[in-house]
Amino acid sequence: MRSFLLYISISMFVLAAICGIAEATIYGGIDENGVLQESLFLPLTFIFAAGGLVFWVLFAIQLLFNSKNRPNG
């Protein structure tokens, strides 16, 4: 179960990076009318990054509780 949370966290961070790169290369900027051009990739970047952070924190909490419950010796 621990590695499952870690794999989800890593995959969400990778998706956030892909969306951020796509936003920076494909979209963005100001057009000739002075209007800022944005796409759906920008909010997806933050959503995936926040999700990755949440799953990483859950992984760390689970790792901490499992280490406390493990008998010494």
Rank of each mutant, 00 (worst) to 15 (best):
M1Y: 15
R2K: 13
R2V: 05
S3W: 07
F4R: 13
L6E: 05
Y7S: 11
Y7G: 11
I8V: 15
I10F: 04
F13H: 08
V14C: 11
A16R: 05
A16L: 07
A17N: 07
A17E: 08
I18Q: 03
C19M: 05
G20W: 03
A22D: 03
E23C: 02
A24N: 09
A24Y: 08
A24M: 09
I26T: 08
D31A: 12
D31T: 11
D31G: 07
E32R: 15
N33W: 05
N33L: 08
G34W: 02
L36V: 09
Q37T: 11
Q37N: 14
E38W: 06
S39W: 06
L40E: 12
F41R: 03
F41A: 01
F41P: 01
L42T: 10
P43Y: 11
L44R: 04
L44H: 05
F46W: 15
I47F: 04
I47T: 06
I47D: 00
F48C: 04
G51C: 05
G51M: 01
L53P: 00
L53F: 07
F55L: 03
W56M: 13
W56K: 10
V57T: 10
L58W: 03
F59M: 01
I61Y: 10
Q62H: 07
L63S: 13
L63N: 09
L64W: 08
F65C: 12
F65G: 07
F65V: 15
N66A: 12
N66S: 14
N69Y: 13
R70C: 11
P71M: 10
N72E: 14
